[in-house]
Write a protein that binds this DNA or RNA. Structure first.
Length: 721
DNA sequence: CGCAGCACCTTTTTT
DNA sequence: AGGTGCTGCG
């Protein structure tokens, strides 16, 4: 019935979704069910088969990576560049709207986007300037609160203070913070969304224009949308726009930052005749892995319901390793990876996942020792590194002298004798006159209010800025970055650090120059000027695409950042109560536990062929030792899917399955993992591994003074302590 | 003013 | 353990 190559190789449900007639659609796309495929083919189909202009389509994702991927896939399907098509993140598209209509939105053309760090600093300052105690009014909490309000579409005037006496203060802080942003032409992430929503709400002609333009709206990861994002979509769709939303309630793992799975329900209620299409055939994992994942997620109530199946029958059982401690766990994982590699497999086909970043350290160490290349995702991002942020602050100040947060950061780094006291004077003068810090600093008459080192330091600072600004027009972007590094003294300050640090940070600075060198202003930002556009990109993009080295390396990341990815071999380490599910979730209740369970589900469904789970009986944790029980999620897996990997020596170790208290035969062997031993030559140590039985039994002991040794039990004169 | 040493706190992360 | 913010001293 269809001849389009776009529809070839699609299963029935995918086909139904891709070639669906006009209307609203909610695609419930299970893990590995070809969600991205459906989205890109749908988009290409609309253009190629329905003759729609790319111009009339808007596609939204959550990450830049997903957006870039979607664009490139669509372009290759269509075999032409997707001009006029709006593909981007919610924040990226909101930014675009605000740039295009900055006058209507009440923003300067070159407004800057504030990152989370800058935002919190500004909130802290706002609290202090309101003469409130930042112990009672924690900036962290305030930032969270303001973001939550913005995510809910609320302005200070729309918030009910409630009975909490703090409530009104917080609302006032929000208001003052917002004024400070407005004064400096600064926009935080939440503001991008809210402001662009208001832009549409308050300008009917503009709204009508975009509603007419965007006949189709495609949304990825719909379960992760928050309230304002959904409202934004709804408004943009209006009465005529058709919404095609793809999501999976079982993979909703971001409720802690405002995502509302309920939007899937709202969508069905708010739009006429929403058709639901389920994608339930999984193309990724083996039957065993899938069965286990299905079984696990079935422990959650409150699901839209969906059962994944696959044609890949059977498969390797999930392996479960009960480690003695975190080092043992790391060693086991590394052993498995070496085995994998020795079978001719690629390292980048394997991933180690964990609940929290703190767990990566041991693994990293062990990988270094084993000389296995690895790549860690997450942690601090390129644009968040101190030396990069310092440089960007100078650039921001060149771009916009009224950017107060940038002023404060640039003035402090490198230090030039102007400290908190002097800065406070500057702030007071600025507040009094209603101008920015730079305007105060640049006025010699006002500078006269300072004396000694602060005054000379500030004068010097202003002179450097002036000098840099004079040369701006003659320099291309990369030269400007270099000029800043040179004249600000930042380059010198980095060079003066201890050699290791100096090298690493210096490389980052070079990387920044390289990025500036290869930067091309995107078409839609041409009105903005090279520097402003570059700074915008720096704040909207984590900058980790630069770090994407193509080396063959084991992938390490949190479970959260693994979403959307797949690997033939997947390890999930730290499967322990208190870690995963984490303590907080256990305390907060069933809702949070269900989210943890979805996280486990997401992790498990990343695995294509082999899934390995592990936990440690004892673990060094926050300085002390923790003895965590195996994660409840292990017990929630069907026993037939799991095979427990255990050392071959008889050991006392309760099975992770079933009642943990079931009586076990008493262990008569003195060999106990973790047991302390003494050797006549090596001294004291700890048994970390044991193999074999009887005369052939060997133990691996980590000696305090002599390191790791493998000993044959029958011959070594080990004393068990 | 700036630095060194000390107390405190600890999920997950994108934009 | 490790990073961040605060305090007290030079």
């Amino acid at each position: 019935m269809h001849s389009s190559p776009l529809l070839a190789d699609l299963n029935a449900a995918q086909l139904e979704a891709v070639a669906a007639p006009p209307g609203h659609y909610l695609i419930l796309a299970g893990a590995g069910s070809g969600k991205t495929r459906v989205l890109t083919h749908r988009l290409a189909w609309l253009v190629a088969e329905q003759g729609l202009w790319p111009h009339s389509i808007l596609a939204v994702t959550f990450t830049n990576k997903a957006a870039a991927q979607m664009r490139s896939r669509v372009e290759s399907l269509l075999e032409q560049p997707s001009q006029g098509l709006w593909i981007g993140t919610f924040h990226g598209l909101a930014n675009r709207l605000l740039r295009l209509h900055h006058d209507e939105a009440g923003l300067p053309r070159e407004f800057q986007v504030l990152d989370a760090d800058d935002q919190q600093r500004l909130v802290r300052r706002t609290i202090r300037e309101a003469n409130l105690d930042d112990k009672r009014f924690e900036p962290r909490f305030g930032t969270w609160l303001i973001n939550a309000w913005k995510d809910d579409g609320l302005r200070p005037d729309q918030i009910d203070a409630g009975r909490d006496p703090h409530g009104q203060h917080w609302i006032d802080i929000y208001r003052a913070y917002q004024q400070a942003c407005q004064r400096g032409g600064l926009v935080d992430f939440g503001e991008l969304l809210l402001r662009s929503y208001e832009l549409l709400a308050e300008h009917p002609a503009l709204l009508a224009h975009y509603q007419r333009r965007f006949a189709h709206l495609l949304v990825d990861e719909f379960q992760d949308t928050n309230k304002i994002q959904y409202q934004w979509l709804k408004r943009l769709a209006g009465d005529s726009g058709q919404l095609f939303a793809v999501g999976d309630d079982d993979q909703s793992i971001y409720s802690w930052r405002g995502a509302q799975v309920a939007n899937m329900q709202h969508f069905r209620e708010d739009f006429a005749e929403v058709k639901i299409i389920r994608l339930e055939q999984n193309y990724r994992s083996t039957e065993i892995i899938l069965q286990a994942a299905n079984h696990l997620i079935a422990h959650n109530g409150d699901r839209l319901g969906k059962d994944l199946w696959t044609e890949h029958k059977g498969g390797e059982p999930i392996q479960l390793y009960a480690a003695y401690n975190e080092n043992d766990e790391a060693r086991y994982v590394i052993g498995r990876i070496e085995q994998w590699r020795s079978h001719g497999e690629r390292l980048d086909q394997s991933a180690i996942l964990y609940r929290s970043n703190a767990l990566s350290r041991v693994l990293e160490q062990a990988l270094v020792e084993a000389k296995i290349p690895y790549r860690i995702y997450g942690g601090l991002r390129f644009f968040e590194r101190a030396e990069i942020k310092d440089t960007l602050a100078w650039l921001r100040l060149l771009n916009n002298p009224d950017d107060d947060p940038a002023f404060e950061r640039a003035l402090a780094q490198p230090p030039r004798g102007v400290g908190e006291k002097s800065l406070e004077k500057l702030r007071a003068m600025a507040r009094e006159r209603g101008v920015s810090l730079m305007r105060v600093a640049a006025d010699p008459a006002l500078r006269a209010n300072l004396t000694g080192k602060p005054r000379s330091g500030l004068t010097e600072f202003v002179a450097i800025i002036d000098e840099l600004r004079e040369g701006v027009s003659e320099r291309v972007l990369a030269e400007q970055v270099e000029a800043v590094l040179e004249h600000s003294g930042l380059r010198a300050a980095v060079a003066a650090l201890e050699p290791r640090e100096a090298e690493a940070r210096g490389e980052n600075l070079n990387e920044l120059i390289a990025m500036a060198n290869s930067y091309r202003v995107p078409e839609e930002d041409e009105a903005m000027g090279e520097l402003a556009a570059f700074l915008t990109q720096a704040s909207l993009d984590a900058g980790d695409s630069q770090a994407a080295k193509h080396a063959d390396a084991v992938q390490l990341m949190t479970l959260h950042s693994a979403k959307g990815l797949e690997f033939p071999l997947v390890f999930i380490v730290g499967m322990e109560e208190g870690l995963f599910p984490n303590q907080r979730a256990m305390e907060e209740g069933p809702q949070q536990l269900e989210e943890e369970r979805r996280l486990a589900y997401v992790g498990m469904t990343r695995a294509e062929k082999q899934l390995v789970l592990s936990y440690a009986e004892s673990r060094r944790w926050r300085g002390g030792a923790a003895y965590n029980a195996p994660s409840r999620f292990i017990r929630e897996l069907p026993g037939r899917c799991v095979s427990e990997v255990r050392p071959k020596v008889q050991l006392t170790r309760p099975s992770a399955f079933g009642a943990a208290s079931s009586s076990k035969p008493l262990n008569t062997s003195p060999v106990k993992l973790g047991g302390n031993v003494r050797h006549p030559r090596f001294g004291e140590g700890v048994i970390v591994q044991a193999y074999g039985q009887g005369d052939h039994a060997r133990v691996q002991v980590n000696f305090d003074d002599h390191g790791m040794k493998e000993l044959v039990l029958a011959f070594s004169k080990l004393e068990f302590l």
